[in-house]
Design a protein around this nucleic acid. Structure first.
Length: 123
RNA sequence: CCAGUUGGCCGGAUGGCCGCUGCCCGGUGCCUGCUUGCAGGUUUCGGGGAGAGGAAAGUCCGGGCUCCAUGGAAACACGGUGCCGGGUAAUGCCCGGCGGGGGCGACCCCAGGGAAAGUGCCACAGAAAGCAAACCGCCGGGGGCUUUGGCCACCGGUAAGGGUGAAAGGGUGCGGUAAGAGCGCACCGCGAACCUGGUGACAGGGUCGGCACGGUAAACCCCACCGGGAGCAAAACCGAAUAGGGGUGGCGCGAAGCCUUCGGGCUUCAGGCCGGUUUCCAGGCCGCCGCCCGGGUUGGUUGCAUGAGGCGUCCGGUAACGGGCGCCCUAGAUGAAUGGUCAUCGCGUCUGCUCGCGCAGGCGUACAGAACCCGGCUUACAGGCCAACUGGCACA
RNA sequence: GCGGGCGUAGCUCAGGGGUAGAGCGCAACCUUGCCAAGGUUGAAGUCGUGAGUUCGAAUCUCAUCGCCCGCU
């Protein structure tokens, strides 16, 4: 699975569809081609100090490795954003969050503006 | 056994399943080169082995390394350090000592040079805050008043007593005196030169002086010593791409020679520029200075892990540390690997049962993530281990 | 990686060794038929935290915590 490394790729994904789950936030951007899916991770300083951010990123990376081969679509760039609750979330729940977020994000168009509003149910 | 001091050490373990990043070996596909079966690069598969810390942190000091073309000398400025001796590549670090302070003690703490080089400040209170003075007092003198106890002002002598303050011009005692005073004496403190011990900081000793010299330098300052700047996103190479810039203002465009397509170019001298400033020497660069505008690259390799390295042992040294010998090689990422998950156990603590050994259950298991590399310092940290020493209690 | 700045009343800031201040805001009262404005009075502070220097520290020094900014 190819990783996103450029800042502009992250900024472009942020303009795409979003879904906030208890353990993570997913952003997706439909590219023009149909090459394999790509994924990037964002864990900000607000999450905690360096070891805590490392653990969050590693759990998200592992979840992506297990979930994406069957659920991700070609031609998409995904950005997974860590949350404070990512560490507390149990791993099976984290994988379910990921699957649900993928399915929501894949839905074509929908009511465009409130695409991210279901995420507010957490807090 | 309880309480404590100092120094050192550890920083969970095992297994199953699935993964990540380098390295080595073997196979496989592709590309390139030619010496035509080898070499190099790369894809993928299998096997082996390695993979965060005591602080990796804060970035507070000291270095290595690289660049600023480069080195030296002096002065000034700026910054830092500040008892003595030693250790070290070096330090503001470490060790040992000296002096001062704290603790019954083991032991701990101290930015600890200079206040007779100069300047500043010492609020309030107080008579007076740095130069000696005198508010209430105390004592003497002559005078006035008087209820014969004294009272009043004046002129002197004093600084013992009172009060203020953080601090009032040595302290305590005795003598002395009208009252007092280093006025005299003893002890303590202070100062000076001397002697002795020590490498030294300093300590000890007697002698003399007869008190003069308040505090503050983490106020300015003086003295001594140290310091060029930037930082691995340094820097070098390969590849790609673009450019070898343009505009504008000021100053300059000097001399000689040569060439010329008459725009100018080249050489030498003069001149200018180059470290925080100035000067000098050596050296380098070529219009100089200020402002504005524009273009390209955000790939790879090296740097990049053998180092003031670690461990063991012997020797020297009180120690920090140094030396000899032997063994070992121990992370190398770059949107950034070193993991995810499950199970069992360990450790600590609480509750219940139990005489107890134990059993069951709950909770907790820290601080924190390498980014060029070392030496220190500081800060954070669940829980635990070891050694030496101190005080107390009990027993022999 | 390198460097700089700021933490003082609810908010914005003064004060740079000697009793912590200003403006806005808040409360009470006066004024008015009522409100606003105005006036008077008042409350409100571990001066980010901890050590040190000093007789005395918001102020000077050191350490530490948090926030902000710049350069590469």
């Amino acid at each position: 699975m190819e990783r996103l490394k450029r800042r502009r790729d992250f900024l472009r994904a942020a303009r795409g569809r979003k879904w906030a789950a208890p353990g993570l936030v997913l952003q997706a951007w439909r590219r023009d081609d149909d090459d394999g899916p790509r994924v990037g991770f964002t864990v900000t300083k607000r999450i905690g100090n360096a070891p805590r951010r490392n653990r969050v990123r590693r759990r998200l990376r592992e979840a992506a490795r297990l979930v994406m081969p069957e659920c991700a679509h070609n031609g998409f760039d995904y950005v997974v954003i860590g949350r404070r609750d990512t560490l507390a979330r149990d791993f099976d729940g984290l994988k379910e969050d990921f699957k649900l977020a993928l399915s929501v994000v894949h839905k074509p168009r929908g009511p465009a503006r409130n695409a991210s509003s279901p995420g507010t149910r957490q807090q």
